[in-house]
Amino acid sequence: MRDLAIQSFSFRFALKRDLLYELVMRDMKLRYKRSILGVGWSLLNPLAQLLVYRFIFEQVLPVNVPNFTSFLFSGVLVWNWFQMSLVFGTSSVVDNRELIKRPGFPIAILPAITIISYLIHFTLALPILLTFLVFSGIKLTGSLLLLPGIIATQFVLILGLSYFTSTVQVAFRDTQYLLGVILQLLMFLSPIFYDVSSLPKRFQTLYHMNPMVGLLDAYRAVLIRGEFPGRSFLLLGLGTLILLMVGYLVFTWASRHFIDEL
């Protein structure tokens, strides 16, 4: 009897893993189907952003940051993953009505599919970033080994947030638009093209409420400064885990009603 239970548990696990795999692959395939450059677009887009930002923040509004190109590029890549997957993760439930209606479909994997698909684009751009780093004379150190941990933290953060936003999106389709506005503002309130240290002291505490501040700093510590992220990063990691757990609970609780609402 117990064997049967274990078997069915591992079977259910295999089913979810394969579902995740196939749906992420579908997402990847469809995104650039019938486009000539295909996945190249996911690299061209941040590079174009990089060019424009560099022009502005070196020629028009100079900011004084060492290794500015690498600083900027890492910021843009990290932010793009955050923004894109949060926006599309929010609509992932509403957009997949036919899957939600299917018996046995694990609804909770829907936001994860979007986030993983953008994570793949993020990882595809990483080698280019590393090349940039090497060319600007930055020495890659052992702290780089922490990169997967930081990526995992960002993944947990986005997934946790998506569980909230996609739940609200089912009842109020405004959520996505509101989120777009918030994200646009948050981009300027995150250290993407300037350094945290250039901020007046009295704003620092408030500024650090934005989880992207700690996250971006951790990325740069590991990639550019060759340091380990500060101890506050552990706190951030713990916070995101709690966020994910609460988000998941809210999502699964609300998902009982999704089908009646969609």
Binding site: F11, A14, L19, E22, R26, K29, K33, K101, R102
Partner: peptide, 28 residues
């Protein structure tokens, strides 16, 4: 029910079999 959930016109029949198959509850 809802035959063809997950089907996408831009994917080949082969690709659609895999996607729809896992949605229907088969492992890969």
């Amino acid at each position: 029910l809802d035959l063809g959930a997950g089907f996408h016109p831009e994917m080949t029949g082969r690709e659609n079999i895999f996607v729809s198959g896992v949605i229907s509850g088969l492992t890969r």
